[in-house]
Deep mutational scan, measured.
Amino acid sequence: GQVNVNNTTYTFPTPKLAKEFAQKAAKKYNLTVHVSGNTVTVK
């Protein structure tokens, strides 16, 4: 799974890890998680 945070893309071996990372990043920066297919964007 891929996660985009502040124009930086992070790649994870599983969608589960990507989702967990996205949720932590969203909480940390007070942003929202947007899911589109296999790509998760935090903005």
Rank of each mutant, 00 (worst) to 15 (best):
V3I: 12
V33A: 05
N38G: 03
H34I: 15
H34N: 07
Y29E: 05
N6Q: 13
T8P: 05
N38E: 03
G37Y: 04
K24T: 08
V3K: 06
N38A: 06
P13L: 09
F12H: 01
N7L: 15
K19S: 07
T39F: 05
T39I: 11
T39S: 07
L17P: 01
F21I: 02
K43T: 15
N38M: 06
Y10E: 01
T9F: 07
V42Y: 03
N7G: 15
N4P: 12
A26F: 09
P15G: 07
P13S: 10
Y29F: 08
N4M: 11
N6G: 13
E20W: 15
K27H: 08
L31H: 06
F21M: 02
T14K: 02
K28L: 13
G37L: 04
S36F: 10
V42T: 03
N7V: 15
E20D: 08
A25M: 15
G37K: 04
T32Q: 10
N6Y: 15
T14R: 02
V3Q: 12
P13T: 08
A22G: 04
T39K: 09
L17T: 04
K24C: 14
F12W: 02
N7P: 10
A22S: 03
V3L: 13
P13M: 07
T39P: 00
T9R: 07
T14L: 03
Y10R: 02
A22M: 02
L31P: 01
Y10P: 00
T11P: 02
T41F: 08
N6T: 13
A25W: 15
F21E: 01
T39Y: 04
A18Q: 00
N6F: 15
K16M: 10
T41R: 04
T41Y: 09
A26T: 09
Y10T: 02
E20I: 13
Q23M: 11
T39G: 02
K19R: 13
N38W: 03
G37Q: 04
A22E: 02
Y10K: 02
L31G: 05
A25Y: 15
V42M: 05
Q23G: 05
G1F: 10
T39N: 05
A26P: 02
G37T: 02
G1P: 13
H34W: 14
V42W: 05
K19P: 00
Y10D: 01
T11W: 14
K19N: 09
Q2G: 12
K43A: 11
V35Y: 04
T39L: 07
P15E: 15
T32K: 09
K43M: 15
E20Q: 12
V5Y: 11
A25D: 02
K24R: 14
T11A: 04
V40C: 00
K27N: 09
V35S: 02
T8C: 14
P13K: 13
T32L: 09
H34Q: 09
K24I: 14
G1K: 06
K16R: 08
A18G: 01
V5L: 12
T41L: 07
T11H: 10
L17Y: 04
V33T: 04
G1M: 14
F12Y: 02
N6V: 14
N4W: 11
T9A: 05
V35N: 02
P13G: 06
T11K: 07
F12L: 03
K27A: 10
S36W: 09
K24L: 14
Y10Q: 02
A18E: 01
K28A: 06
T41K: 04
V33K: 00
G1T: 13
A25T: 08
A22I: 02
V5G: 13
P15L: 11
N4A: 13
P13I: 05
K19T: 07
P15T: 10
P13E: 09
Q2K: 09
T14I: 02
T9G: 03
K43F: 15
K43S: 14
F12P: 01
N30E: 04
T8R: 14
N30M: 06
A22F: 02
F12T: 01
T41V: 10
V35I: 08
A18P: 00
A26S: 10
V40F: 04
N4G: 12
V3G: 12
Y29L: 06
T11V: 14
K24D: 05
N30S: 06
F21G: 01
S36G: 03
F21W: 15
Y10M: 05
K27Y: 08
Y29W: 13
Y29M: 05
F12A: 01
N4H: 13
F21K: 01
K16A: 14
V35P: 01
S36M: 10
G37I: 03
T32E: 11
N4S: 12
G37D: 04
T9I: 13
N6R: 11
G1E: 12
G1H: 13
V35D: 01
T41W: 07
N7M: 15
A25I: 15
Y10N: 01
V42N: 00
T14Q: 02
V40H: 00
L31M: 08
Y10W: 09
V33G: 01
G1R: 03
K24S: 07
N6D: 09
N30Y: 08
E20P: 00
E20G: 04
L31W: 14
Y29T: 06
P13A: 14
K43D: 08
E20F: 08
A25N: 03
K28M: 08
P13R: 10
A26W: 07
G1V: 14
Q23I: 14
V3A: 12
V40S: 00
F12D: 01
V5R: 10
Q2Y: 10
T11G: 03
L17D: 09
K19Y: 13
F21Y: 05
A26I: 13
P15A: 14
V33D: 00
L31T: 07
N4K: 07
K16I: 09
L31K: 04
N38R: 11
K43H: 14
Q2N: 12
A18T: 02
F21D: 00
K28V: 09
L31R: 04
K16E: 15
E20L: 15
G1Q: 12
L31S: 04
H34A: 08
T32G: 05
A18M: 01
V35Q: 05
